[in-house]
């Protein structure tokens, strides 16, 4: 079974308040971005014509974010709300309801290539094996019909640069719908930024090519790099699933340590959005040296090494290659 889905059909969750309208050209678009990576995309597309508020800022973990009344006020007064979708922002529905916003809530993964959450498939298979009420058949069919429940898809789609280009296109479309006068600018900005993304993708592939194929298994904190693995051929293992909300069980950690020893993982990394202690413990037990910090679900602050999406991807691949083959 292919792990790839076209999201266009599957993305049924955030069709919240699909009201679009144009704002007066003299005013900047008020844009709310759910987390820092989307905010960076929006900045590149919107330029000086948009004012961007970011809900989950640099180094923040959107999986466990608790929205504040001030966030609801921000969303309530926005012209456009940009979100990842795929249930990455678990807080989204209650926040949108509390905000009573009339702005379109735009799911940027729409139209991208989406990976299944293999953890969720395991969940279904476990249930089917146990003979309990379950939906194991749905793993093979039916999702394209719009049935979409918690954890069905891996939300970290931005870890594929190809998908990042889809995010950018969707942002340009959303800005054009809300501000027709600025549409040409948004399209030009998106095109220009898209060229930078294409160059970035080539850079990543060239760097990976320098890593021996038998050294391409590494460890991180949570399953945030499934798209990177799929696109670029580095195998990632992690003690935590696609969400940081649930802590890894002792059995999960033990199984991972066994697999690391058996399959000879090359390197282990902490992530900027998770507590490093579990990774440090695994490193200690397996003899792997922590190879550095990867930026998974959030950018760094402006003084850090991953203040933009392009810097983040460059930083990650540089750190990965450096830990495996030396810089």
């Amino acid at each position: 079974m292919s792990r790839m889905l076209k999201l266009a059909a599957a993305a049924s969750v955030v069709t919240l308040l699909p009201v679009t309208f144009s704002v007066a050209a003299a005013e900047n678009l008020k844009v709310v971005a759910s987390f820092s990576i989307i905010a960076d995309f929006a900045k590149n597309v919107g330029g000086d014509r948009v004012d961007i508020a970011t809900l989950v800022g640099p180094n923040g973990d959107a999986h466990v974010y608790e929205p504040k009344p001030a966030d609801a006020a921000e969303v309530g007064s926005a012209d456009v709300v940009l979100v990842n979708g795929l249930q990455f922002e678990g807080f989204l529905q209650r926040l949108v309801e509390a905000s009573a916003t009339k702005a379109p809530v735009v799911e940027l993964t729409k139209g991208g290539e989406v990976l299944r959450n293999t953890e969720e498939e395991d969940h279904h298979e476990d249930k089917a094996a146990a003979g309990k009420e379950g939906h194991a058949g749905e793993a093979d069919e039916g999702h394209e019909e719009g049935h979409h429940h918690h954890g069905e898809s891996d939300p970290h789609a931005w870890q594929s640069v190809h998908n990042a280009e889809v995010y950018v296109k969707n942002i340009a479309d959303a800005f054009c719908a809300a501000d027709k006068a600025g549409c040409d600018t948004y399209r030009l900005n998106a095109e220009s930024y898209g060229e930078q993304l294409e160059a970035l993708e080539e850079e990543i592939k060239a760097t990976i090519a320098e890593v021996p194929e038998d050294k391409r298994m590494i460890i991180t904190s949570h399953d945030a790099f499934g798209y990177f693995e799929h696109e670029y051929g580095i195998k990632f293992l992690a003690p935590e699933g696609v969400s940081t909300e649930s802590e890894a069980s002792a059995a999960d950690v033990a199984a991972l340590i066994k697999q690391i020893r058996q399959d000879k993982a090359s390197a282990i990394f902490v992530e900027n959005v998770t507590n490093p202690r579990l990774i440090e413990q695994i490193a200690s037990e397996t003899g792997l040296k922590v190879g550095g910090e990867l930026y998974s679900d959030a950018l760094s602050d402006e003084n850090g090494p991953a203040a933009t999406y392009i810097e983040m991807m460059r930083h990650n691949i540089t750190v990965i290659k450096g830990a495996i083959v030396g810089s």
Binding site: E66, P67, K68, P69, A70, D71, A72, R94, L95, A98
Partner: peptide, 23 residues
């Protein structure tokens, strides 16, 4: 608060206060 993160407290006999604990 539930769903949104805040605290609601009394403040004097005829006032209440909304508190954002993260700022």
């Amino acid at each position: 608060g539930r769903g949104l993160q805040y605290f609601l407290g009394n403040f004097g006999a005829d006032k209440v206060v909304l508190i954002d604990p993260t700022v």
